[in-house]
Every structure is written in C-alpha cells, then in structure tokens.
Design a protein around this nucleic acid. Sequence first.
DNA 1: GAATTAGGTTTATATTATAAACTACTTTAT
DNA 2: ATAAAGTAGTTTATAATATAAACCTAATTC
Lengths: 95, 95
Amino acid sequence: MSDFKDLDPLLHSQLRLAVMSLLMGVQSAEFVYIKEKTGATAGNLSVQIDKLSNAGYIGVSKSFKGKKPVTSCSITKKGIEAFESYVNSLKTYLK
Amino acid sequence: MSDFKDLDPLLHSQLRLAVMSLLMGVQSAEFVYIKEKTGATAGNLSVQIDKLSNAGYIGVSKSFKGKKPVTSCSITKKGIEAFESYVNSLKTYLK
DNA sequence: GAATTAGGTTTATATTATAAACTACTTTAT
DNA sequence: ATAAAGTAGTTTATAATATAAACCTAATTC
C-alpha cells in the first residue's frame, strides 16, 4: 500500500479496538466491566481478550473477589505502542 | 455497544476504506490508478469495488480508452455520508 | 501465429468474527 | 438438602470476510 499505511489486523477489529481504547484510559479493568462498556457477548469478549493477550498487547490476571472469579485486564507497553501506531496509520485514511 | 458507536462493516476494511478515502479526494478514479495507490491485487480490488458499488457507496462506469477497457469509480452522496459517519464513529474509539 | 501483456472477473481457500452451547461454581428458593 | 437460577467465564461450531490464485478476453509484441 503506497499511500496508505497498513493497519494492524489485531487492532482493526471493532471489539478488540474498543477493548484497547478502554484499557488505554485506565490502569486495569475487569472482564464484566469491559463486557458492559463494549456491549459484547461474553464468548466473543473471551476470544478477543485471548488474542490481545497472546499478542502481548494486554495482561490478564485471574483472581477471586470473595468467592467469585474475576478476570482483570491491563494494557502493556507493547499494547500502548501498537495502539498509538494503529491510530497514526489510520490517519492516512482519514484525510 | 454503549460507549462505542458501531462501525459500518463495509467501511471497516483496510482496502475498502482506502478506496473510499481515495475517492473522497477526487471526482473519479480508474481501476488501475486505485490499484496502484492502494497496492491491492486486481482480484481483491475487483471484489471490494463490487461491494462498495452494490452498497451504493460508489458508482462504477465501464468504457474504453482507445481499445482498452477502463473502469472508472466515483463516490456517491450516500458514500460520502457513510464515510463521514464512519469517521465520526471511529472517533469514539480514539480518545 | 505463438507468446506476452493489459485489464479485469470468478472461484477457491484461509482467516475472522460471532453466537450458541457448555463448564464450574455460587446463591437463592423450596 | 436439593433443585433452580445466576455469575463468570471458556470452548466449539458456524457464518461472514478477506485474500489470492486461477481464469477469461482482447490487444500487442516477437
């Protein structure tokens, strides 16, 4: 693509982009909170979080809040860089 | 999606977005020109142009330049509106 | 006149997104 | 005590999408 920069396919997905956008603004967020904010189904969110985690864009930690399992996600340095790079690439398409 | 606006799936595709972005800036553009500017393969471009055309986002006209077939594309009013709406929705993900 | 090039289109395949079904456990009602 | 319902996810199956490879037709070039 000569005039347009390639878009990281991992970020060029509505739900994954929403997750990353959300995590850009906070220290960490729980699975259920992300689910609500994005409106995603649990299954879809689970899959996409896995992908972001496998790419090293986010960190995932599982613990318990009382007796309930809690999955917490936070963006990594690599994830922040990828997000910023994606936004920059995207700009080549918007003007 | 509560915090994030849905992204038109037709535009949320690297190649189709590039085509639309390109057409936003010109009156019309030929297939071969778009192919060069986007770096796409002919087959892929053909398919994506079809989709944009079927959606009414672009108009496609076929003619001859001397003896060679030429496919010209131009964005429609509907296409301009869709592109602008897409960009607005996208903004909910970028801040 | 056979091979190559130009300008595409069609079809097949690989990838992706999404939802439906399932697991494991906890809380509430009977 | 146990059955039913809810919470917090994961796994698997299916539908949709993107992409490339193969193909087609006509025009040049060797």
